[in-house]
Each structure stands twice: as C-alpha cells, then as structure tokens.
Amino acid sequence: MDRTGQVLATWVDLWTAAGIAETRKAAPRVETHRTPVRCGGARPRGALSGMIEFRHVSKIYGKVRALDDVTFAVGPGSVTGFLGPNGAGKSTALRVLVGLSRPSSGSATVLGLPYAEMACPGLRAGTLLDAGARHPGRTGREVLTLGAMTLGLPRTRVGEVLDLVGLTERESRRRIGGYSLGMRQRLGIAHALLGDPEVLILDEPANGLDPQGIHWMRLLLRHLADSGCAVLLSSHLLHEVEQVADRIVMIGRGRVLAQGTVEELSRGRGLEQTFLELTAHTDRSPGTGTFPGVDAGRGAA
C-alpha cells in the first residue's frame, strides 16, 4: 500500500509539474506531459511547479517528527484538500507554509517565495488558520476593518467580504464572543478574502458549518478556483473534503501518504476505503467499517 502511495505521489508530482492543474476535467495521462513547464525566471529550482509548494519539509519537535519529508504542490485553478486524522500534521504544515513556524529542514513557498519574504503577503495569499483565534470583545466588522487597514484597502471592502460570506450587517456589529462556530468560520473566510488573494490557505474551514454552509463554501471555493486561485484547505473529515476539493493530499503522522484527484484516489473502491487503508498503519484508527475522520480523530486525540 505504501508503495502504491509512493508511485501515486510521484505520478502526481510529475503531473503537477506539467502545469496542468486543472483537475476537474478528465485528467490527461501524465505520459504526454512529462516535461515540466519552465516559466521565465519566476520558478526557482526543482521539479514542482505550483502556487503553493512544499519541498521536503520536515518539522521535528524534540523526538516527534510532526512533519516528515512533506512534498506537494497546489497549482492555479484547483481546490486541494489536505486530508488526515487529527494530529497528522496538517496545521503544523500550514503554519510552516505561512512562516509562523520554521521547518527543521526543507522549504515551503507561496507564489515562488517563502511566505515571510513576500512584501505584503496578505494581498497575495488569504489565510485562515483558526477561526476561534479572535478577540471575543471585537465585533466581526472591527476585525475585518483592522485587516483592511493593515492591507491598505478601502473600508468598503469590509462590506463586500461580509456580503460574500453571507454575514449580515447586524451580525457583523455583534461581538465575536457571541458568534457560533459557523459564523466564526465565515468571518475567517471573509478575512482571508480581504486582499483578493490568488492563493487561499484554510485550516479546517468547514468545521462547524452546517450542510448549507458546506454547500455555500463549495460554491465559493469552486468559483475562486475557476478564476485562477489556488486553494489549499485542510480537514480531518473525509466527506467534507470530498465535497469541496478536486485534488487530495492525504497525510498521516507527518507523512504524505498519497495525493491525486478524488477519482484517482478512489480507485473504484471509494475514497473512504483508500483513506482507511492508508491511515491504518500510521494511526490508531480501527481501520474497518467506520467513518475514518471521526474514529481516527478520537484515536489520535
């Protein structure tokens, strides 16, 4: 199974390198696109070519390998789901990506640069790492106003992103302490969209959203991807990812287990089965007949 994952990962790397990340269309066979597209001087070294790139990123805390040689890329026009049980390293990887955490080795780049070296990253990449990490005493509108001020955006942008995520004028003037998790997620996504970014990095954005909310998010992310955005979203819930993502990177115990389109990873047996098999050896999930996100999550918690 590991070998299959490896082969698949290599396959997808090559495929991504060919610059054809438009994954919803029937995937062209990789053999016809083996030569990576080299583009100007914009793309430095290596075989990957994506708007988000992880290159052999490892992160070691003491004796724990939180990330182990993580390599993958997210190209323009795709929604990539970063799927793995709780504690698999998803959040750590995203924190490394946006420069909040330093990798022990390897590098992660956004639009070809380490995130922290971008002049004003908030205008190129929108990030939501934890919808709960807000001052409860501020109103939703105030949080967005602070973000808009920081990025030098007109205040009218605040109203626009509020409309975009479906938060009403009245809700936006309430203190965040009274928000439901779903409202906080919407606020977080609104904040990420402030700078009209080309890249979106969302950690567990579907947590707390109701089915309508997930449907709404799918449409929004699809729309953004269709306009050229690269979207990377993490989740431990397989069905959520399945609904919104067109590509999936599976991670367990800090390692990339497999990556590819939803159809590829399903391989005729369903995505769930693939996920269970891949995570069975790396996590303490029971491994059969149960919903992996839930059980793997409990096992790892």
Binding site: I20, A42, S49, M51, G75, P76
Partner: peptide, 8 residues
C-alpha cells in the same frame, strides 16, 4: 504568477 505559468 499565473501569467508566468500559462494554463487553461
């Protein structure tokens, strides 16, 4: 970057 990386 999308300009540097021609894609559909």
């Amino acid at each position: 970057i999308t300009r540097a990386t021609p894609s559909p």
